[in-house]
Design a protein around this nucleic acid. Structure first.
Lengths: 119, 119
DNA sequence: CGGTATCCGATATGATACTG
DNA sequence: CAGTATCATATCGGATACCG
């Protein structure tokens, strides 16, 4: 017997959301931008162990998906500011509730300490 | 200048949440279990393109993280039922809001149709 | 039925050096 | 400063065969 295949808009939309935010760095980057815009160098400084290459890729994808806005100033040396779009801001309460879910559901000892930079 | 490293419980908890649900299949599996328990064979049937190996791995990890409960019956042929734990159920409204976020933020044409099986 | 075991390709992430 | 380019590695996901 084959497998049933049925469209489900809710599951499909969830898959899309996970494609947009569900990887190692994107939720962190969104969180870092919650309080306002940041320059490339600051984002790099605040996310230890990320490489420039990966940071660039993640920012480009978030921009393509309409989550963040990239503003480039014609100066030398160059200055680039990243900020959350409306879509990105709409994500913040959901990420907050995910964070809260962890804090409600697990003891500190159950998940290894992670050291992420913040402002 | 080095990078600042500061603990942030909120970001840390978000990272943990993404570790628990942020991959290709786990949110789908949680959604599939939203309406009650399902057997291994049913989960396999309802997630086209997943392999037995990967399904087993995902279910084991969800069990380790306390999201689902695995109940094995001593019968021949064997029967195994998977269901959501309390932690898993607490995740449902959050996944729902992520799904809703996509539907509010994107046109259908902006994300490729995905065909996921449902009941 | 509900898995394991083995192999393998694809993708994600990272280190480093270089550039306009 | 804000990237690219290149190379290396690790993890993820998938195909297939076999097992209790």
């Amino acid at each position: 017997m084959g497998r049933k295949v049925i469209d489900n808009p809710n599951v499909c939309s969830l898959v899309h959301a996970m494609n947009v935010i569900g990887n190692k760095w994107k939720p962190i980057l969104i969180y870092l931008l919650a309080n306002g815009s940041l320059r490339f160098g600051k984002l790099l400084m605040f996310t230890p162990t990320i490489s420039k290459k990966v940071l660039t890729e993640q920012l480009r994808e978030l921009e393509e998906d309409g989550i963040i806005i990239r503003k480039k100033y014609a100066e030398i040396p160059p200055r680039v500011e990243y900020s959350l779009s409306k879509k990105g801001k709409a994500l913040l309460p959901i990420l907050k509730s995910l964070s809260q879910w962890t804090q409600d559901s697990y003891n500190e000892i159950e998940f290894e300490a992670c050291r992420i930079v913040t402002l």
